[in-house]
Write a protein that binds this DNA or RNA. Sequence first.
RNA 1: GGUAGGAUGCCGGAGUGGUCAAUCGGAGCAGACUGUAAAUCUGCCGGGCUAACGCCCUUCGAAGGUUCGAAUCCUUCUCCUACCA
Length: 425
Amino acid sequence: MDILADLKWRGLLADCTDFEALGKRLVEGPLTLYCGFDPTADSLHVGNLVPLFGLRRFQLAGHRPIALAGGATGMIGDPSGRSSERNLQTREQVDHNIAQIRGQLSRFLDFDCPTHAARLVDNATWTAPISYLDFLRDIGKHFSINVMVGKESVRARMESDTGISYTEFSYMLLQAFDFCHLRQEFGCELQTGATDQWGNITAGIDLCRKRLHTTVWGLTHPLLTKSDGTKYGKSASGAVWLDAARTSPYRFYQFFIQSEDADVGKLLRVLTFLPQEQVEDLERQQAANPGARPAQTALAREITTLVHGKTACEDAIRASAILFGGELAGVQESTFNEIVGEVPTREIERSRLEGPGLALTEVLVHAGLCPSKGQARKDLEGGGIYLNNVREAAVQRLVTTNDLLFGKHVLLRKGKRTYTVVTAR
RNA sequence: GGUAGGAUGCCGGAGUGGUCAAUCGGAGCAGACUGUAAAUCUGCCGGGCUAACGCCCUUCGAAGGUUCGAAUCCUUCUCCUACCA
């Protein structure tokens, strides 16, 4: 299957400046394409995986991807898809974020491939040295304000209460310049991105035509949404990050295991590299026996392995099996230790549990499962608290050293799936 | 610079002297049903104390003031919005 057909089947094609011409170009031979990632944080999140995996899909199909880290654009702030002005990041923040993100970008692409190796670039390398006057003369001259204010990203903000600063208004010039530069430097002919990047991408295409008299293309991926239309990739505790320090592999795995039936088919297509037959087979299994959740299991395994590696994924699977396996009665110490470190863990001084012990409500607050003792009491009364996987409804319950598993740990659970291990020290 | 309007809990948004820790909706958390799914129903949803009835503390942009009593009235300040210049 050719790359465009594959992307289409996966639902990854939102728009293209010229499907037909691009399709023709793609069969002629390897093409160089790029996609940019701004360092708005020190880690990418699952939403970024759609365009990033897009680059990988192109590389697997024999093309040359360039992942661009926005060291320059990250200093400015993209107004696209934002209803209000961004806070400028300090240079130090951007530098730190860029360093982290470069590492993440490089994990999914092959830089050693002899025929179509990937590249990692930073737009600060070519943007920073240019003087303001040169930029205005060489780049700015090609832009019509009339066209710029017509772009969705600008118009939306001009109509909003907060407006748009000159800084963010200029963002599209920088991104357009990137495309132009990459066309000149590496013969890059295609830029990809999420749909909100359409305006910035077409700005680059126009600039290439005007400055270089050459035709390049743009291709956008749909924004990843849930079946109810809301944005995908946010859990209750915020975004789902690729950085294991921000979102542990266990939590990452759990996020996908908990996918809704209505979404899981789409997620398999968009976030994994499983072939069409296999995805369709999983969807059939899911429809036949939804309770077994074969699709969620496959999805979580695939993507956790891609992002965190085989070992971390297997650890997450084992920890999940223990936690969601019911009673802890027969569990061995070595097995239990596997979940310590996977789920959030808090320490407590052993002395506080000795003698009469410590109120369970206090332990819950200490563990971070409940925001206050009052809330902990209510959660207990509501039957939502489990001590070592056994429901505990007594508000006055004290936790003592007798509750320690293997003399060390207490497993606390709130609701169906929020766990914390408290370790005596 | 002028005029008018606004600022309420995570968000939206009622309330315009006591019955207000503040209607309602959304989000969130928990329970029931299930499948670590969705939908639905129920409870909770500022903090502390209590087994509980209940009690106490801190909130309605900020600071003062009027009053027995203020989110609600007055003064000043800060910020936002609209129109005018």
